[in-house]
């Protein structure tokens, strides 16, 4: 039981942290660019992004399943029922959240910071980094929210991961299984572990929020 718990916890952290980081690696730059520049149709893109916050996890799971199934276009990659598939599914869910929240926090400070940085001699890249750093409270909150959604999500990872013991079983799918089996106490322990993991990750991120990153 103890080694089961450890494996499930470590895999949960690995999958959700990877999904959040990989999604952030794309979503934060995209959100920054969208927040910095006023382009045509920005409002439409914004509204669309906000709508995707409510994307149902099971639908995301179903889409990824159809994509990765042997009959699907990417079936030959043999990614179905692997942690990689779970990471992919969580990325799909988390990406719009991080993009949207980054965009709104960047656009809040963009005007002032952009001008200040440029008058002090920043080039385009440095300006973007400065704006991002000044918007960090919002951006890191965005990443936190994304991680929260990723690690608490169950429908999509159950669908594409399969809840396979020692392989794709994570905290949430284990909770579902144990509840179904009637092991309520163990399910609650798993829930407590999940919250602890989230707390630790949030604590680490909070430090970045306070200190910032130097250009």
């Amino acid at each position: 039981m103890a080694s089961d718990l450890l494996h499930v916890t470590v895999l949960s952290i690995f999958v959700s942290v990877s999904a959040t980081l990989l999604a952030s690696a794309m979503a934060v730059p995209l959100g920054t660019v969208m927040g910095l520049h006023k382009f045509r149709g920005r409002e439409v893109v914004k509204t669309f992004t906000y709508t995707l916050y409510g994307f149902p996890p099971v639908v995301a799971g179903l889409l990824i399943y159809l994509l990765l199934s042997q009959r699907g276009p990417l079936g030959s990659l043999n990614l179905l029922f692997t942690p990689a598939a779970m990471i992919l599914a969580q990325m799909v869910l988390v990406f719009p959240i991080i993009t949207g929240l980054t965009m709104s926090s960047v656009s809040q400070v963009a005007g002032e910071v952009k001008e200040t940085a440029m008058t002090l001699g920043a080039d385009r890249w440095q300006t973007a980094k400065t704006v991002l750093n000044e918007a960090r409270i919002g951006v890191i909150s965005a990443i936190m929210v994304g991680f929260g959604r990723a690690i608490a999500e169950v429908g999509a990872v159950l669908m594409v991961g399969g809840n396979i013991r020692w392989h794709t079983r994570v905290l949430t799918t284990a909770i579902v299984l144990e509840t179904r089996r009637g092991n309520f106490e163990y399910a609650l322990v798993l829930g407590a572990v999940l919250l602890t993991v989230a707390l630790i990750v949030f604590f680490v991120l909070k430090r970045y929020q306070d200190k910032g990153v130097k250009i």
Binding site: S18, L21, L22, A25, L77, N78, T82, P83, A84
Partner: peptide, 17 residues
């Protein structure tokens, strides 16, 4: 860190395939 994770995933995927 991001690059390492991606590399790890690639290795994982290779084994899984």
């Amino acid at each position: 860190v991001l690059a390492l994770i991606t590399a790890g995933l690639a290795a994982w995927w290779y084994i899984e395939s």
